[in-house]
Amino acid sequence: MAKLELRRVVKRFGDTTVCNGIDLDVEAGQMVCLIGSSGAGKSTLLRCINLLEPIEDGEIFLDGSDISIPGLDPQSVRGRIGMVFQNFNLFPHMTALENAMLAPRRVRGLSRAQLQPEIENLFEKFGLADRMGNYPDQLSGGQQQRVAIVRALAMRPEVMLFDEITSALDPQLVGEVLDVLLLLKQQGMTMVLATHEMGFARQAADKVCFLKDGRIIEEGPPSALFDTPQMDETKAFLSRALK
């Protein structure tokens, strides 16, 4: 049984079908990269897994139990699945530390003092020890995105979703954020990324899925998908993306 299983997931916005029957297995500790043009459905798929968007059809299983049952309380599931967004979405009225503490305090019911060592530890691990007291607008893009990752990790999620988290960054800041992902992979975190970083996907992913028009056209280990793509759409996309 895979950690995360998607079965024939369909998501529509009005008449537009954004995810059109997506099947995907993510094993525990795997890093899966979703690639494809903007509008292929990568971000929407991640939002569906996190239950930010209800799905029209299909099922999503976390540890074998269906989390996509209509009417299920999404709160308990979201605590187990962390998500990081393209534009960081830090809370601007809170310091980095307060950003990371809010959810564990409210949802896990812990006090600041109880959380302090654990969260400070996270900040230290990601090179942010001296930034905990800063507000988001006092941080660089790369620092903000790392704080956003710390904030998600503070809920001790079992799976992490990353929605094009380096797309809003200056090129010289991309590396520091990707390093964080490698560190998480080392620690055995299960991760699903929507990404445009082909080099990173090739180097770090266990599995790469190419999406087009709301379907997974082709999937496989990065070496196979990047070096010997089978489908014409994949070839066309890669020849453009790797130019």
Partner: peptide, 16 residues
């Protein structure tokens, strides 16, 4: 609305 998404994704309730 992205602030709402981010907060919900952390497991906070609508009220919180």
């Amino acid at each position: 609305h992205s602030q709402r998404s981010a907060a919900l994704s952390l497991g906070l309730s609508e009220r919180q």
